[in-house]
Design a protein around this nucleic acid. Structure first.
Lengths: 226, 226
DNA sequence: GTCTATACACAGATAGAC
DNA sequence: GTCTATCTGTGTATAGAC
């Protein structure tokens, strides 16, 4: 699977993400018209990611956000009831995104080797497609309140468990070697994370997401295959 | 080399770090007595790391810092002329720490394999010894001004280059296989980073720094050795 | 839905007594 | 060296006109 194949399979666009956010938060969002909401959420999220990449979420003032989106301070609040809530909205959507994609690609294969490769690549490709979202989720998780933070840890455990289960399945069927699968899964996750945390390094060096994903799979084969 | 051996070789303690900071910043620090300065810098750094781990550096107010250190607001400023300067002091010291340790352990070996293993372990062990420092450096680099930020990127390039040079040396002497050494170095750095970014995961699971370092070396051998 | 104007809490930083 | 008191700017959030 290459990145272009991945894009054909999942239809993840900025607009669809914003529509999803609108549906999931109808309770707190004061805006009634979907079209308006989607259009402005696009502006808002883009602005949040851009400003936050520079100075962090805590360092972003609502005035910064107002300036960058072109919406006034007063016009922002109908979209989220507080700055804290805005953070939570972004984090929650990111988590469902990850879970949905992993489930989709897990279900596509039976054999452990194929399943592992699909799941690893899907995660890297999703983080490429929604790079600012992933970067934001990682860097700003600490600013969530206790409950939301717990949800992040649960997603973290979930994605690790997906990998561990596949590795165990492969050990039983003899394709993967016997080893500490938790450590193996952690290393895999570390390599996936590298892609969206240090993206600038790879852009500068013309290393594409396909290059990177293939390299990671080579490493994984080297230390997992029996 | 095990973690305990590493500790015998480098004499890195909280007090020695604070003494170094005091010496390196005599120009801006208003306190004259070394003993006082070291004692309070220990309190200050501990407090910064603890508060920042919870809410980030931008989210830490000087009043938070005052409360946690037990020093009044007015008593803090003689130690650094602004909050921004406090951030820079911590980042600068962290960078010299990394460079010094890498140089020390690079010089200890001739062969590429031994050199690579020593350098990888030294970095992981240093990040274990100064864990909060490393975590802080990574998470708060974005709040530096342009010049200090450039210095961080240079340290990043430097540590990567150390690895690439060793991999190339080993390729020439036939012990490492021919491959994209930049990607190899990046993956190694990603695994090192994992240790201090997700430390809680490993504490919870009773995986020691020696366990982790050995596992990483196993992975490295699997995809680097000829 | 979006605007302007504003409430009021809290930030970083300093002055000057001890 | 460290304290308390305070200056001044900026933060989030809301009210009410359009």
């Amino acid at each position: 699977m290459r990145y272009s194949d991945f894009l054909d399979i999942i239809d993840e666009s900025r607009a669809s993400a914003c529509r999803q956010v609108f549906m999931d938060n109808k309770g707190t969002i004061k805006i009634r018209k979907e079209k308006t909401a989607v259009k402005n959420f696009e502006k808002i999220f883009d602005a949040v990611f851009e400003i936050t990449y520079e100075k962090g979420f805590a360092g972003m003032s609502m005035r910064d956000l107002s300036r960058k989106t072109g919406l006034s301070l007063g016009a922002l609040y109908p979209y989220f009831k507080s700055k804290e809530e805005l953070l939570a909205i972004i984090q929650r959507h990111g988590q469902t995104l990850i879970k949905d994609v992993l489930e989709t690609f897990c279900a596509k294969h039976e054999g452990a080797v194929e399943k592992l490769e699909a799941v690893i690549k899907a995660h890297i490709f999703l983080s490429e497609k929604a790079r600012p979202w992933f970067y934001f989720m990682f860097m700003e998780a600490k600013h969530l309140n206790a409950d939301e933070r717990k949800a992040v840890l649960e997603t973290e455990s979930y994605t690790e468990k997906v990998l561990v289960d596949i590795l165990e399945q492969g050990e039983r069927s003899g394709v993967f070697r016997k080893q500490n699968h938790i450590l193996a899964a952690s290393i895999i996750k570390a390599m996936q994370q590298e892609w969206y945390l240090k993206r600038w390094k790879y852009s500068k060096r013309n290393i594409s997401v396909d290059d990177y994903a293939e390299y990671v799979l080579g490493v994984v084969r080297a230390f997992c295959l029996a």
